[in-house]
Design a protein around this nucleic acid. Structure first.
Lengths: 253, 253
DNA sequence: CGTGGGCTTGATAGTCCTCAAGTCGGGTGG
DNA sequence: CCACCCGACTTGAGGACTATCAAGCCCACG
């Protein structure tokens, strides 16, 4: 059972100079290259661009009528609070969307915070509803985005419910590596950005920071993978994949 | 960590005579009272009605181009398999839909089985895509359905990640009770149908059947709630709710 | 410099799993 | 009709995995 909640203090040190450029050039995530009507709806409901420092909340549980955020650069995470503890439910990477669930359902059951320095485009929450009438292509993308997120959450659930410490950590590493690799963001062949603190891994995997640390050591000792300086370095991919199990293989976009 | 996988053997004994009638009269779930264009698309892509005996698979992980199933009566459950173990991810109640995720994403990462005797209406999987162009009202309902499911899965994830045995069980009870109560299916004030075996509770909550049993005893001994004869009987609602924590309070449709 | 976080590591304890037996009930086949 | 079998359910004893607590280290920041 994870540690208690306390607002994190110090910000992670780095930004990510690289992905800023890369994102804007190569991908715009859900909103890329839409039909004419779809794009105009998008423009009509775009409110502003904003920046968030690490750990700043974008969405709070219980809010009504939240905005929708499209992440331009940086990572965010979505979490829930129960019994005085936090459970991270999903990470949101550049090109992805926060707040869709709340916009569709009318009430927000989770919170979202910036994990790193974050740049986003803010949209009116009504975008979600309106798109279904006025921009079917966009609506379909939004629907798939929610479906993909549900898929990821189910994957994480299965991992926490069925796997032990090392398997969970291997899953998390592989999952985040693949999500970045698919977007061409894994710079070196077996490395990627990995700006999670021990606490974030703990709250994602239902463990404590202390035990995350021990498990991390084990993975490094055995020459499988290591996290240093906010980067994940995979030394033995096939062994990591074997430990993580078939689940992480797919890891829907 | 839950028990190993083995195909269950014997079927649960009862059907549920009551909800059959009630469902058809009071609700048709996602598809009720649609606009003209929406309804006709629905009819065009309805394939058949079917029945499934308990434990029969509707959808298997890895299938491509699956059908969509609308549940008429009975319950189903959606699960994933990792490291030789099963994790139940969601239960599907009358009026709800199975296979939507697969239809939207093009590939299916989970499996679905009948929990009880089941009656469903089968639709062509293309319904999901087509509705976005031809039946926006329907598409919006489907989108919300996926969002609601994502919400439930996140809730369960938080419960497994943050709570101990008794809290997990209390959450499951309250969650399923509320989903039925909202539809007027909780016959007596604090009772409802509860056709889960120990194994299903275990695979839902990331525990073993043996420990489910011990925890169930504890809840009964303390006069909080009991499961007997496929029915959940809540004896002390407020205490159950307090144990379950705020999370189960909402439990989106 | 002092302070506060995050990281690290050890010792201890608790929850829950594992394994194994034994009970119960229904279904099947003689 | 009864014997048998099989699965679900129970319960106990032992052990594994992980949490908890505590202390020390390091770094960035004020």
């Amino acid at each position: 059972l994870p540690t208690d909640i306390k607002d994190q203090g110090k910000a992670p040190v780095t930004g990510n100079q690289f992905s800023d450029v890369r994102n804007e050039r190569y991908l715009q995530g859900v909103f890329r290259s839409l039909g004419a009507g779809d794009g105009s709806l998008l423009n009509a409901l775009a409110l502003s661009d904003s920046r968030f420092p690490p750990n700043r909340p974008l969405i709070q549980e219980g809010e009504i009528g939240t905005c929708i955020f499209r992440i331009v650069s940086g990572w965010a995470y979505q979490y829930r609070t129960t019994h005085g503890r936090r459970q991270i439910v999903d990470f949101l990477l550049p090109g992805e969307i926060a707040g869709l669930e709340g916009a569709l359902l009318g009430l927000t059951e989770h919170s979202v915070r910036a994990l790193t320095e974050l740049r986003v485009t803010v949209f009116d929450g009504r975008l979600a509803h309106n798109s279904f009438r006025a921009a079917p292509e966009l609506a379909l993308r939004l629907g798939r985005h929610i479906a993909a997120q549900a898929c990821r959450i189910g994957e994480l659930l299965a991992t926490i419910g069925c796997c032990d410490a090392i398997e969970r950590l291997a899953f998390l590493m592989l999952s985040l590596y693949r999500r970045q690799a698919r977007r061409g963001e894994a710079t070196s062949p077996l490395q990627c950005w990995f700006p999670l603190r021990r606490r974030h891994m703990a709250e994602t995997l239902g463990m404590t920071g202390a035990h995350i640390n021990r498990t991390l050591n084990q993975l490094r000792r055995e020459g499988i993978a290591a996290v240093e300086n906010e980067r994940l370095i995979i030394q033995d991919f096939s062994r990591l994949a074997r430990i993580a199990g078939g689940a992480a293989a797919a890891s829907v976009p």
